[in-house]
């Protein structure tokens, strides 16, 4: 416990700081409601023409959209902006002076940043799409609970792994920012990759069938497509376990890569005296 203390403190400090941005949370929530409605209307229009062509039911697609909007801030959209600032201000030098494991320290802070941004928005979204919509008589457009206890239980590790995997991806981006002293390039590449390959643009099975073997094994699938399909039991039993294994595998690989890269980057920063 004592060994973990600085990392927990780093996490908590960042979490509290981000919670202060009340207007940002409300604005984010409003934005996500809008995007959700928009996506659902587009789905509904296409399902209205030819529902049989779809890989999942409309109700599941709607839940997929709401879940995605609720957990949007948990995805690795960009490198942690604090890293970019620290690089520019030279504050990153202080991190080297702390008697801590640099990777774990940044990882904890990044996790705090992502979770604090996501938590209030997810709560509001659950309230709006899960509770208010059915009460308003719009149950057909609502965020449905998991269909079974098994699905709900499987979603717990899936959620934890999507968070861990997301933070591991942000960490890689952070390290590239620290090494290249520039965040624009990384973010310009990361965001579109995320949108297409995580299943944010469309659930991955909506893309032409020939692409499935590839889309189902790449790391971004573990951020949205896999955990969400576990949630509404499109992936159940062995398929769900396979999905979890894929999430866990990529998380381990990417954390390992990040650890290798951070050591090299830190050494280089030391040599430059940056």
């Amino acid at each position: 416990m004592q060994a973990l203390r600085p990392y927990l403190a780093a996490f908590r400090a960042r979490f509290q700081l981000m919670l202060q941005y009340r207007a940002a949370a409300l604005a984010g929530f409003a934005t996500q409601c809008w995007w959700g409605v928009l996506r659902i209307m587009i789905f509904a229009a296409f399902y209205g023409v030819h529902a049989a062509a779809a890989p999942i039911s409309l109700a599941d697609a709607i839940t997929y959209v709401w879940l995605g909007q609720a957990l949007l801030a948990l995805l690795p959209w960009v490198a942690d902006p604090e890293i970019g600032q620290a690089v520019r201000s030279g504050g990153i030098g202080y991190d080297r002076l702390r008697p801590l494991d640099a990777y774990s320290y940044w990882y904890a802070r990044t996790l705090g940043w992502m979770l604090a941004r996501a938590a209030p928005r997810a709560a509001l979204m659950a309230l709006a799409a899960g509770l208010v919509l059915p009460l308003a008589g719009l149950g057909a457009w609502a965020w449905q609970p998991p269909p079974s206890l098994a699905a709900a239980l499987l979603f717990v590790p899936a959620f934890a792994l999507m968070t861990a995997l997301g933070a591991a991806i942000v960490m890689l981006a952070n390290i590239i920012v620290a090494a290249s002293l520039n965040e624009r390039g990384v973010n310009a590449v990361l965001t579109p990759l995320l949108i297409v390959f995580s299943g944010t643009l469309l659930p991955l099975d909506f893309f032409p069938d020939a692409l499935r073997p590839f889309l189902h094994v790449q790391p971004f699938a573990g951020l949205v497509d896999i955990p969400f399909r576990i949630y509404f039991a499109d992936l159940a039993g062995g398929a769900a376990l396979q999905g979890l294994a894929l999430q866990a595998g990529w998380t381990v690989v990417l954390i390992g890569l990040g650890r290798l890269a951070i050591d090299r980057t830190m050494r280089r920063l030391e040599m430059q005296g940056g």
Partner: peptide, 16 residues
């Protein structure tokens, strides 16, 4: 004004 600590941060979300 912001009250200190996590409880304060949460309260600040609702009422300032």
């Amino acid at each position: 004004e912001r009250a200190p600590g996590l409880a304060g941060a949460l309260r600040g979300l609702v009422r300032r």
